[in-house]
């Protein structure tokens, strides 16, 4: 049985090489991919998320921990079933909307989502509805996340929501976040949900997935 507590600790400290090696060793020792993912990587990353929330960790430490997590994931990914990701929690496409270049919060959301087992495609900042739609065609996400930090750019989220709506029933769930947004704003523009912080975002994505996968009434 691998020392998952130690693996979590290495991940927490951002020791990418150690995490990668421990992931390999755990697999070689006969552990299942799922167990290593859950107990070795995801468990470590959730402590990182908690400590960030409480000002124990700051942005650089979170980024470095997330990279260690990624190092472990590169070992697991090819083994996660045919296509590489059928066992993943879900697929998240995310970006900051047009005119807005704030991305610290979005990047943290990406990391926590990856930490929770999502396949994440981050299209970066200043993204138009066309870019969101094109990326969705290619990546086939379950959830599309939009971030905005400016009151002047949050209205663009509605443009993206409308863009997806005009596509007709794609089944894709739309999530929003960023300091000036709120659940009320999500309701107003017809988004499927709002997340207040990185862990709230992950809970939101999970609940949206459940809704998406629930059999139609």
């Amino acid at each position: 049985m691998p020392d998952y507590a130690l693996m979590n600790q290495c991940l927490y400290e951002g020791k990418a090489r150690e995490v990668e090696q421990m992931t390999r060793d755990a697999l070689a020792g006969g552990c299942s991919v799922r167990e290593v993912l859950l107990e070795g990587l995801i468990a470590g990353m959730s402590v990182v998320g908690e400590d960030f929330k409480h000002n124990v960790l700051y942005v650089p430490e979170v980024l470095i921990a997330a990279r260690a997590m990624k190092a472990g994931m590169t070992v697991l990914k090819p083994l996660l079933g045919p296509g590489g990701d059928t066992n993943s929690t879900g697929r998240l496409l995310i970006g900051t909307v047009r005119g807005d270049l704030h991305d610290i919060g979005k990047n943290l959301v990406c990391m926590m989502a990856e930490g929770a087992g999502f396949q994440v495609k981050d299209i970066g900042v200043d993204q138009s509805v066309e870019k969101f739609l094109a990326a969705a065609d290619e990546f086939k996400p379950d959830v599309v996340g939009m971030s905005a930090l400016l009151t002047t750019t949050m209205s663009y989220m509605k443009v993206v929501v409308d863009g997806f709506e005009q596509r007709g029933k794609t089944g894709i769930k739309l999530a929003i976040g960023g300091a000036p947004t709120s659940q009320a704003f999500a309701d107003e523009i017809g988004a499927d949900g709002y997340g207040a912080d990185a862990s709230g975002a992950v809970d939101l994505f999970l609940s949206l997935l459940e809704k998406k996968n629930a059999p139609a009434q």
Partner: peptide, 11 residues
């Protein structure tokens, strides 16, 4: 880039 620079501080 903010993210890159934050990582540079450590790495």
């Amino acid at each position: 880039g903010t993210t890159e620079f934050m990582m540079d501080l450590v790495e």
